[in-house]
Structures are given as C-alpha cells and as structure tokens.
Amino acid sequence: MWRAALLGAVLLQAGAAAAQQAAPAPPLAASSQTLVLWFLLATLALVVTVFVLVVSLIVIKMQPLLRQLYARPTVHNTWSGKVLGLFVGDNRLVTGENRDELMGHEYDGIAEYDNDLPPWWKYSFVGTVIFAIGYFGYYQVAKAGPNSHDEYETEMRQATLLVSADADDPNKLTTYTALGTPADLSAGKGIFVTNCAPCHGPNAEGKVGPNLTDEYWLHGGEINHVYKTIKFGVQGKGMVAWKGKLSGKQILQVASYVQSLQGSKPAGAKEPQGEKETIKPLAAK
C-alpha cells in the first residue's frame, strides 16, 4: 500500500516537473512582427528593383522610336519633349538651354559665358515664392493658424506645467523686500564688484551689460525681478545664472545694492535700454 502511495507521489512530482518544462515559452510576437516587417521590406525592394529594370529595358528597346518622336519639331521644344529628352540623352530639362556659349565679352584673356540657371532651380524658386504667399496668407492675413508668437506662448505655458512650483521655479516670482542695512549693502557691493563689474562697470554704468542706474530695465527693475534675473540669468543674452554660485541671501544682497544705485548717474553711463520703470531709491537703514 505504501509502495503505491510512494509511486503515486513520484509520478505526481514527475508530472509537475514535466508541466514546468512544457510551460509555454515567452511570446515571440515581437520577433515575428520584426521578421514580417523585414520580409515585407525585402519584398518591396525586390519589386522596385524589378520595376526599374523592366522600365529600363523598355526604354532601351524603344530608344529608336523615342528618338524619332523627339526629333519632331512639335515635340522637341515642348516641356513634355524635354522630359522625353531625358530618355534619349538630352539633359536640357536639368542643365538648361545654353551651356558655355560665349557672349562676346572678353577682357584680359577672360571670356564671359552664357549659362542658364538649371530649370529645376528656377522651378524650386517659383515654388518657394508660391509657398511663401500661401503661408503669409494663411497665418498672417487669414489668421487661420497660430503664428510664431502664439506658438511660443503655448510652448511656454506647456513648459510651465512641467516645472515644479518651488523656490527654484523660474516662473514663480519671489516676494522679497530689499535689504537696506549698511552691512547688507556693503556685502552686496563686494559681490557686485567681484562678479558683476566686468560686464556692468564698477559703478553699474554699463559696459557689455546694460546700465543699472537709470530708469530703464530689460527684465524689470523691481527687487524680485532683479533677484530672478541674477539667479536664473537670461539665456542667449549673455547674462549668466548665479544660482549655485551665490546663496539666496547673497543674490538678494547684490540685488538690493543694485537698487540702491538708482539715480546715481555715474560718469560714462551707457545709453538707456529696455522699458522705463521708476524704482524708488533704496534708503539705507
């Protein structure tokens, strides 16, 4: 009895092992689809090759007939005749009518030739003009599609959704108050002289960068706008981002120092740039 039970257990274990071994392999759907794709591409390439060979053979066999047709005056100078000329060795449709024809102008051993612009170039130019007229009419006259400014605004709104709304969000303006203590302004001046003077001048009169002492601002003159410009920079305008190089307090100190220079009128000040924005000079505390 116990032998039968033992034999049954062994058979069950063997069956389980066989079932595991016979378990279906991972699906090969992806490999099959790849094979089918390559097969279709190879078939398409073969069909195209055969088609080109057949057409070439037909053209070669029909060349005498095509030459006779091409020689007719009613066909030779027509546009369709020029297309036909490509099959009999006349490349006027590609190279133009005149090639290396002397115009009778010669100076110092240099002769002037009369060469046509390639017809394909002329047709392409006409095509671009037609496209430009249609493009201008669609986007600028009919306003049927978004112009470049609208697309930029849309992309910026989409980008804003992908930026986290935290202290390092360049789209979120801070609400800081300018620092007015002598210690903060002195620290801000030291940072400015070390890092900002090469572009804005030792007195912020402006060099490569704009004048920071007048009422005109490219990116806003309020303390939080200045803070944002210093921290994140201005891409493509030469203003580097000082985030990671200066601490938040240091950025606020130098921004406060810049605001304290309003109306100082340094010698050799650069001409105004940007929009006028009256900023009240910062009074020291």
Rank of each mutant, 00 (worst) to 15 (best):
Q250E: 14
G236N: 04
E215V: 14
Q262C: 13
T177G: 06
G248T: 00
T175M: 11
H225N: 07
E205Y: 11
V226K: 03
E153W: 12
N147L: 12
D166F: 13
T213L: 15
T154K: 13
Q235K: 09
G188H: 06
Y216C: 15
R157M: 14
G236R: 01
V193Q: 11
T213F: 09
G221V: 07
E151G: 13
N195M: 04
F232A: 06
Y176A: 14
L246T: 03
S186T: 15
L212I: 09
F192A: 11
L185C: 11
A267C: 11
G236C: 11
E155M: 15
K172N: 05
K231T: 10
D184P: 01
L252I: 11
I230C: 12
E271V: 13
S164N: 06
T174Y: 04
L185P: 01
L218V: 11
G180I: 03
L173W: 00
D214S: 10
T174V: 12
L261W: 00
V163Y: 04
H225A: 12
G188C: 12
C199P: 03
I230V: 15
S256F: 08
F232G: 02
Y176V: 07
S186F: 07
K249Y: 05
T177D: 04
K243M: 12
D150G: 07
A187T: 05
G188Q: 02
K237I: 02
G238K: 05
N171C: 12
D169N: 15
K270P: 02
A178T: 02
P198K: 08
D168C: 08
S264D: 08
T213I: 09
S148Q: 09
C196A: 08
S260F: 09
A241D: 00
G190E: 00
A187Q: 09
C196M: 04
N211E: 00
D166Q: 13
G209C: 07
G236W: 05
M156N: 03
K243G: 11
M156E: 05
V193N: 04
A204Y: 03
E153C: 15
K270D: 00
P202N: 10
S164C: 08
G180S: 08
L179G: 05
A178N: 01
Y176K: 01
K189H: 06
G263F: 13
E151W: 13
